[in-house]
């Protein structure tokens, strides 16, 4: 609504360059990583479904190992989130510092 048709049909006077500077590029890849994180988590948590189970007659995995695995996955997810949180905070700080924040949404 804000500015109908702006920048859609005609090229804007300053054409954005095809490649981003290194920092913006890093930021975008970081956002990609944040998007992928839940999928990584889901994959890690789906893995236990492949483990041997007592119903199959095989030697079932002891519960303590399962607990270790699941809590380790959990810890890894939390750790990555912490790292991303710190990175996101820096990104936000830098975005506030430089007004060209528009370029970096998607």
């Amino acid at each position: 609504m804000s500015s109908p048709g702006e920048g859609k049909d005609r090229p804007s006077p300053v054409r954005p360059s095809l490649f981003l500077e290194r920092q913006s590029y890093r930021r975008r890849r970081l956002a990609d990583a944040a998007r992928l994180l839940p999928f990584l988590g889901a994959a890690m948590l789906a893995l236990p479904l492949l483990w041997p189970d007592e119903s199959e007659g095989a030697q079932a995995l002891p519960l303590s190992s399962a607990i270790f695995y699941i809590f380790a996955c959990w810890g890894v997810l939390i750790l990555i989130s912490v790292i991303f949180g710190i990175a996101a905070r820096r990104m936000a700080a830098r975005e506030n510092a430089e007004p060209e924040a528009e370029t970096w949404r998607r």
Partner: peptide, 24 residues
């Protein structure tokens, strides 16, 4: 504690795949 867990009646890995994914 870990030994006791493994020795208990729930001491072996057993989940229903459907319930596991559905509940998550």
């Amino acid at each position: 504690m870990m030994d006791q867990i493994d020795a208990s009646e729930i001491g072996q890995w057993h989940v229903d795949a459907g319930r596991w994914t559905t509940f998550i």
